[in-house]
């Protein structure tokens, strides 16, 4: 025990920030770490798509139609002679933008609804969750089609449509998590020293209820990328000639026996991205579990 005679001011900053600990633990989970690195690469590709793409996505070159993969066109060319590699790279931007935007909408709205419903309970819970049930009961694709029918096709509206579909998912996950956290003694302890509801919600309930929401975010991103592809495939999402993985898949469908690479490479891009988001979600689930955390970090009682 070192007891200085005059209590000096202590540092109120944590000795070891929690997020850094989380990253450290994630790094020790090989599957999740590889997924995270791959996703980071995909995001970087999406950000620097213009620079990275060897050609413009819509540069038509009739002479180079339906060429199989080669050094000049690693992923081959499509029926209009457009470079598939370039279109896959630019498609990453479209797919991820729609994915992030959609999940962002669902995350913000769904989490707020779940937080209020779970924390206040009673009629707030009843009213909010019944609305969520109705939204949830509506067939997802139909709902998306309805939104797109009203607002018109396009990637922004696709994101909005997918986002609305996922609101109840986030609301439910958040509510379930909040229901557990709300009863924790530390929440009551905080109330006992006079903390307001807003402070309880933002400083104690949300941070402690966050792990399942983070996992859900990762998994929903996978679904959103898939949904964007599906809607584009159906002709409701991104409109040609803009490259989107789903749209490319749809366009390549007709040539599947003639030129497999048209559908294969965008398909692989979707597969890889979705897989990585899912694996990262699983990894996060393990890392954010307090029990696992104590074991791995070597803290605890």
């Amino acid at each position: 025990m070192t007891a200085p005679p005059e209590p000096a001011a202590v540092s109120l900053k944590p000795a070891r920030p929690r997020w850094r600990e989380t990253l450290g633990l994630l790094a020790r989970n090989p599957t999740a770490a590889v997924s995270a690195v791959l996703l980071l690469a995909i995001v970087l590709i999406a950000v620097f798509d213009e620079t990275l793409a060897p050609q413009g996505p819509n540069e038509i070159s009739v002479g180079d139609r339906l060429q199989s993969p080669s050094w000049a066109h690693p992923f081959g060319t499509d029926d209009l002679g457009r470079d598939i590699l370039s279109r896959v790279i630019l498609g990453a931007g479209v797919s991820l933008r729609v994915g992030f935007l959609a999940v962002g909408i669902a995350l913000v709205i769904g989490t707020v609804i779940g937080l209020l419903a779970g924390f206040y309970g009673r009629w707030v819970d009843d009213v909010l969750m019944r609305i969520m049930d109705m939204l949830f009961a509506f067939p997802a694709v139909l709902l998306a089609i309805a939104v797109l029918a009203v607002r018109g096709a396009g990637s922004g509206n696709t994101a909005l449509a997918i986002g609305i579909v996922y609101i109840p998912v986030f609301a439910r996950v958040t509510r379930a998590s909040v229901l557990g956290v709300r009863e924790e003694v530390y929440v009551r302890a905080s109330r006992s020293v006079g903390a307001s509801d807003l402070r309880l919600l933002t400083r104690h309930v949300l941070p402690n209820a966050a792990p399942p929401i983070i996992v859900q975010t990762s998994i929903s991103l996978a679904f959103a990328v898939l949904a964007e592809a599906a809607l584009s495939f159906l002709g409701l999402g991104t409109q040609p000639p803009n490259p989107s993985w789903g749209l490319m898949l749809a366009e390549g469908r007709g040539f599947i026996d003639l030129a497999w690479w048209l559908a294969f490479f965008p398909g692989m891009a979707i597969f890889l991205t979705v897989l990585c988001f899912n694996l990262l979600g699983d990894g996060l689930r393990d890392v954010l579990d307090p029990k696992q955390r104590t074991l791995m970090a070597g803290g605890g009682r």
Binding site: K13, V185, V193, G194
Partner: peptide, 18 residues
């Protein structure tokens, strides 16, 4: 009774902030 995501200082200083 202690929020696992907050440091001792954050917990003890909560009444001071509130």
């Amino acid at each position: 009774s202690l929020d696992p995501r907050r440091t001792v200082a954050q917990t003890v200083s909560e009444p001071l902030e509130v």
